[in-house]
């Protein structure tokens, strides 16, 4: 690793983004290695499809590059901003699935599924993603941030720019809707034992 990379390796993300906005390409490489895995994982968990998740992750990173020139240190955390951008990009993509309806649920949809996912898990993941697509977007985002990303309600409130009480309400309503959408498909998704 060269000297400049060492110099930047300890820098906070926000400082790197400002450096990139000033034309420093090394900063982009370090930011990509730091942020892209998490961005891709969030998109994959929400969309249940690798190709769609990669496109959403690339778009989120592009928006980061485009905002670099306007970023002011101390104003916002990049991680919070990226959670919001990825959630918005994913709900945009989920919206396009609504016309397909729930009949397609549980079909193997990802041509390149994660090796770590069993067939049942793939089907459940895709079914959940399709059910999230049927929810109002703010409910889907709150549920995903809480139960797929594992974030605490205050952090979700900051990401979504709402109160903690609003997060709790959105999450509760979202989960009720998910149960209604998914309960009828328990048998085909391997829930015979419950």
């Amino acid at each position: 690793m060269n000297a400049s990379a060492d110099q930047w390796s300890e820098a906070p993300d926000e400082a790197l983004l400002v450096a990139f906005g000033n034309g420093d390409a090394e900063a982009a490489r370090i930011l990509t290695s730091r942020l892209l895995p998490r961005v891709l994982a969030q998109a994959q968990r929400m969309l249940g499809n690798r190709a769609e998740a990669e496109d959403a992750a690339q778009e989120a990173m592009l928006r980061l590059w485009r905002n670099a020139g306007n970023w002011r240190q101390g104003e916002a955390r990049i991680s919070t901003w990226l959670y919001r951008v990825v959630a918005n990009l994913c709900t945009d993509r989920l919206r396009s699935r609504r016309s397909v309806g729930l009949d397609s649920i549980a079909e193997p949809a990802d041509p390149a599924p994660s090796a770590a996912e069993s067939m049942v898990d793939q089907q459940r993941h895709r079914a959940l993603s399709d059910a999230l697509a049927q929810l109002p977007e703010r409910q889907a985002q709150a549920v995903a941030l809480r139960h797929l990303e594992g974030l605490a309600n205050p952090e979700i409130a900051e990401i979504m720019d709402i109160t903690v009480e609003a997060v709790e309400s959105l999450t509760a309503r979202g989960k009720r809707s998910l149960v209604a959408l998914l309960a009828g498909r328990k048998a085909e998704l391997g829930y015979d034992d419950h």
Partner: peptide
């Protein structure tokens, strides 16, 4: 029920 779906998505 939902825990099973969430767990699958968190692989």
């Amino acid at each position: 029920l939902l825990d099973g779906f969430f767990e699958a998505a968190r692989a």
